[in-house]
Design a protein around this nucleic acid. Structure first.
Lengths: 134, 134
DNA sequence: GCGCGACTTTACGTTAACGTAAACGTAAAC
DNA sequence: GTTTACGTTTACGTTAACGTAAAGTCGCGC
């Protein structure tokens, strides 16, 4: 039951990122692919970590922030005493995310207004203009 | 009915950013404060633009992206022909924002799981440990 | 006149997240 | 045997978004 592995170019194609980016993530300690001689072999766990990193990026997290969120899952970090701090961290991050959602909703409604203005203006123009390229 | 104006330090305090940041925004053409001799005077319109820029930053937009959203409101950009492109832009940005919301919801539920794991672990420990610093 | 606080300009420094180029190894394909 | 495709390391370059330090101006309170 050998674990399925991926090459670096497979992952780069799948995620639409360069191999440089993937190696950079390793260089920064975000992933730890196996080695077969020289070449890197990525487990599905590595793949998931990359996916989560990219998700973090989409919502404006730095790489470091993404890692800090991902590592919350690591059972090794459960130093009992640290758990309290961890909970606090979670709370903070949740608050930031809720703020983000509110910001996004505000921006979405802004876009809605803009869109209405546009479509109205377009309608008016359509009544006046005959051919677009005269 | 003189428009209410603000000094640079007022705004920096209000928004929790440095004066350097505000001047940088001007340098990049994001705002255009009036001048009273040497010193800058900010209108409420300037203030709003800064507010929107900071909102954009919170959801991971670059300054340029924020400006492009803000400028959608500018009636000067309504070059009739450009309106179609504008609508398309709005659609794209909306899609990105919806993706972001989904990403945030995913992250939020991740945090929820982490939190549960933590509180359970903490409860178990409370049954075993007497004094925290022995 | 002198210091202060708030404002200004100019300019070099910094960090994150890669891009890009050089120079090389290896294995399959022609 | 050499081109093609994929992998590697090393290392310098780049952009955004400011930080930071130096040096100066301006009105006030004493």
């Amino acid at each position: 039951m050998a674990e399925k592995t991926h090459t670096i170019s497979e992952l780069s194609r799948e995620f639409g990122i360069t191999t440089r980016t993937i190696r950079y993530y390793e260089e920064k300690g975000l992933i730890h692919p196996r080695r077969e001689g020289q070449t890197r072999l990525y487990s599905t766990a590595d793949r998931v970590r990359i996916k989560l990193i990219l998700r973090g990026k989409r919502i404006g997290m730095t790489l470091e922030e993404s890692v800090s969120v991902i590592d919350l899952y690591d059972p090794n970090n459960n130093n009992a005493t640290q758990l309290q701090a961890l909970v606090a961290t979670v709370q903070e991050r949740r608050a930031a995310l809720l703020q983000q959602k509110a910001d996004i909703d505000d921006t979405l409604s802004s876009l809605g207004e803009v869109e209405q203005l546009c479509s109205r203006a377009l309608q008016e123009n359509l009544l006046v203009i005959d051919s677009p390229d005269s």
